[in-house]
Design a protein around this nucleic acid. Structure first.
Ligand SMILES: [Mn+2]
Ligand SMILES: [Mn+2]
Ligand SMILES: [Zn+2]
Ligand SMILES: [Zn+2]
Lengths: 167, 167
DNA sequence: ATTTATAATGATAATCATTTTCATTGTATA
DNA sequence: TATACAATGAAAATGATTATCATTATAAAT
């Protein structure tokens, strides 16, 4: 039972991870090494990469991939919901594979206002969901607004920065 | 009783609204017409203004106030917690007086992804607070993170944009 | 395998909100 | 009114992102 469900999970994860190829082809986009490389760069880290981060990561192995292509690809993948784009306040967009296409489950962020460290957390997703549903129902009725997404985020001082302040 | 509490509230609101002068002086900053004008511009609207919005609003009455000063003042006021700075995704920062200094109570935002209309909502602040406290306690323990602020936000399609899509 | 239509790319220039610089002005205090 | 220095404006600089356009690569048809 356990094994089966794990396999099931692995199967789904694997299926989803390769789904992007079909999604692209399905919409008439082509499969290119740039696109594959960019998705792999995002898949092989748990960090939130900027366009330049990705450019530098890939540059040694793929010197022909330009920054422009990185931007264009990220925009496309974001549009298709394959990646998520964030602004954490350091004046550059940061990206990560979104739930269905990456390893991370639905999560939110803890952001250190001092060093800009980002922590993914998945705690209280259930309680959160309850509030979100409630809120969503009420607000969509009250303002006749169709809610399609949400953003929850905590700001503060991380472990290290907290200590620094006490020094 | 009713009257008294209303008066009390008015009194507090009024006191807070003028608090910024003391806050500035207390920290060695000077009171200037630019600063007063900028705060008044924010106070006389319920919109979320950009630096340029404020510049244009003030320009007829105060042609001598430059955009640079607007930016500098907004940064200062944000630092002091007198205003809040937001990024709603239109590649320019937007500001509003924060709770204690403006007319609006603690609230969050509903953002139309099509026309970028922003709706302030105060519903479910209590339920929200419960979740926030819970989350806050757990996360600060688990990650040894000192939480000082949060961001909750819903995205979707507003009344008008929803109809447009059906046309 | 070759051809063909056109999507994708890279180098470069352009944008545009925000910052920096620096000489000048305004504010608060004695 | 004089003094110290915070605040300001004009102009230039910055830096992430986007637009242009000539060239190249992809995928489907031959
Ligand atoms: Mn994340
Ligand atoms: Mn608001
Ligand atoms: Zn930190
Ligand atoms: Zn709208």
């Amino acid at each position: 039972m356990e094994a089966i469900s794990i396999n099931k999970f692995k199967g789904n994860a694997m299926r989803n991870r390769c789904q992007w190829r079909k999604r692209l082809k399905g919409r008439g986009y082509r499969l290119t090494i740039s696109r594959e490389a960019i998705i792999n760069a995002l898949r092989s880290t748990d960090k939130h990469l900027s366009a330049e981060d990705i450019y530098l990561t890939l540059h040694s192995k793929y010197p022909e991939i330009g920054l422009t292509t990185i931007y264009r690809t990220l925009e496309l993948l974001d549009q298709m919901g394959i990646i998520s784009k964030f602004d954490f306040g350091d004046s550059r967009a940061r990206y990560e594979l979104s739930g269905d296409y990456g390893n991370k489950a639905h999560h939110h962020h803890l952001i250190c206002t001092n060093c800009l460290k980002i922590i993914d957390y998945t705690d209280f997703i259930d309680d959160e969901l309850e509030l979100l549903n409630k809120t969503q129902k009420e607000l969509s009725g009250k303002y006749n607004f169709d809610i399609t997404g949400h953003l929850i985020r905590f700001y503060g001082l991380c472990d290290e920065c907290k200590e620094e302040k006490n020094t």
